[in-house]
Design a protein around this nucleic acid. Structure first.
Lengths: 155, 155
DNA sequence: ACCGGTTAGTTCAAATTAAAACCACGTTAT
DNA sequence: ATAACGTGGTTTTAATTTGAACTAACCGGT
């Protein structure tokens, strides 16, 4: 395997990626906190539930979709439940499992922050890319994501 | 301002970006912990010092380059110092300032971990992109990063 | 029915992080 | 000088995150 230093182009791509994701994360976090007092993690939980059938998911599915660890998810869902945005329910078909379900209040909280969230994505990512670039960018990042998932699951 | 939902292409780009950065972060974190027992944050501190003149930087410069908050940096540098990878020194020209300097042991720790780190970047990012794509990808992410820095500094 | 191996989810302790308050020093203008 | 303001860095406290250990329940084969 090649073990030389990265070339300037490689380094530029890697550092740019790192920086962009870092800054984007900060910006998303800032907006969500400002507009709705929620963290990005909480937002991802809420939006995942919102998108799901019956607006509910089992904890483990929720963890997979949001890429949040089990213990972290337990904590976050407990917080959300405490604020009334999510409700936990037992699962009939599997007594180990737990449903996390979006409440009406949770849907409202989500509606409150979504416009600003979109705005952040548009202002900082979409607006910087031409339609063709956007298409290609989507290909590239998804290719990378697929690769990473592969290698992770092979573990 | 447009406030419609994101288009499928926009969504795909955004979610792919989010997923890729999330997974990449995990993978980098995993490798650094496995090969050298360090976190990504600590690695970024060490590598920044390694690259700097005289292998040292003032805390505030270090914070800027690594995008680590002041208080977090204080904590991390204290940890690194505790393990002997970094040393703190007073700054003559400004008595408020503090130099963080890479020790020989710190350089060794870095050397220990760098090959695996490069491998992770190559295996998951570089290898997925053709040379032309890499070039363009670098352009795009740096454009996004620049945009985010602009808006942040305008705050 | 029962054993061993998984899976779902929570709990616990320890480590890390965020955010605000704080101290000391530098800078500028009066 | 000195007041007012900004910068560099640390401290403090509370919140969050991690990772391992743990409980309960499912599943396949005997």
């Amino acid at each position: 395997m090649n073990n030389d230093a990265l070339s300037p182009s490689e380094l530029r791509a890697w550092l740019g990626f790192l920086t962009a994701s870092h800054l984007m994360e900060h910006e998303v976090e800032r907006q969500l906190k400002a507009d709705g007092g929620m963290s990005h993690g909480e937002f991802e939980i809420l939006i995942s539930l919102f998108m799901a059938d019956d607006r509910r998911l089992r904890m483990s599915d929720l963890a997979r979709r949001t890429m949040i660890s089990k213990s972290r998810l337990t904590y976050q869902v407990t917080q959300l439940e405490r604020h009334g945005l999510v409700r936990r329910t037992d699962c009939d078909s599997d007594r180990r499992a737990v449903w996390a379900e979006l409440t009406a209040k949770g849907a409202d909280a989500l509606a409150m922050v979504r416009p600003g969230h979109r705005q952040v994505v548009r202002d900082n990512l979409i607006s910087q890319l031409s339609p063709e670039e956007l298409e290609l960018f989507g290909d590239l990042v998804n290719r990378v994501a697929d690769r990473l998932r592969e290698r992770r699951d092979a573990r």
